[in-house]
């Protein structure tokens, strides 16, 4: 019985954490989309140097654990004189990380657009960048929306790792409640349930947008 009452009592406290988690995720995805768009285009660049640089970025960030990346940004960078507070550090690490995954999604999205679209646009005198901006990327983003939704969901869950550097998001707040009440099962289960609610709602929203864009 204690387990349930403790969970209910701490629920508003946990919900605030969930709100933090959502904000953290939203910012990180925002950074990830901007970063990923450029790196994704860079991976298709004919300029070898840019191509290699972007490929190296993607390989490195996908090939190392997020927990290590967060640690580097929060604990490692201060040694180089760059001191970030926990929240900005978390957004930075998550944003850089999702940027790598989103770059791959964007790359595939660009490649899914028929070559003729690019040629038609260039034949009208539009530059490479104008063609990307007005022709290729708008169509690519429509195609990759489901994959971006998945990335949002993945990042919502991965953001729990920010708890290790003291960002008071959902996971951190849960651990805080447990250290006070020792109700490990109910609290962790409650947290899991809140994470599930968030990802479930996000996936529904993505599906809704997808369907609206399909009919537009």
């Amino acid at each position: 019985m204690d387990a349930i009452t403790e969970l209910l009592k701490s629920f508003p406290f946990l919900l605030l954490g969930a709100w933090e988690t959502l904000k953290l995720t939203a910012f990180s995805v925002g950074i990830g989309v901007i970063l990923g768009t450029f790196i994704g285009m860079g991976r298709l660049s004919k300029v070898k140097f840019i191509n290699y640089l972007c490929t190296a970025y993607v390989e490195f960030l996908r090939g190392t654990p997020l927990l290590v990346q967060i640690s580097i940004v929060y604990f490692g960078l201060p040694q180089l004189g760059i001191q970030l507070a926990p929240y900005p550090a978390a957004i930075t690490a998550l944003g850089l990380n999702s940027g790598a995954y989103i770059a791959e999604i964007v790359r595939a999205g660009i490649q899914s657009i028929p070559r003729g679209q690019y040629e038609a646009s260039r034949s009208l005198g539009l530059t490479h960048w104008q063609t990307m901006r007005y022709i290729i990327l708008p169509q690519a983003f429509r195609n990759i929306l489901p994959a971006l939704g998945n990335e949002f969901i993945t990042l919502t869950k991965d953001s729990s790792l920010a708890s290790v550097i003291g960002v008071s998001e959902l996971m951190r707040r849960g651990q805080f409640v447990i250290s006070r009440t020792f109700q490990t099962f109910s609290i962790y289960f409650g947290i899991a349930f809140i994470y599930f609610l968030m990802t479930f709602v996000i996936s529904r929203i993505v599906r809704y947008i997808e369907r609206r864009m399909a009919t537009a």
């Binding site: 028929p114 003729g116 040629e119 260039r122 429509r142």
Partner: peptide
């Protein structure tokens, strides 16, 4: 090259209208 292309119009077999 972009100036050149504004002086030369092209029509493709697959139309290549922008679907969006």
């Amino acid at each position: 090259v972009n100036k050149l292309r504004t002086r030369i119009g092209m029509v493709f077999q697959q139309f290549n209208l922008f679907p969006h």
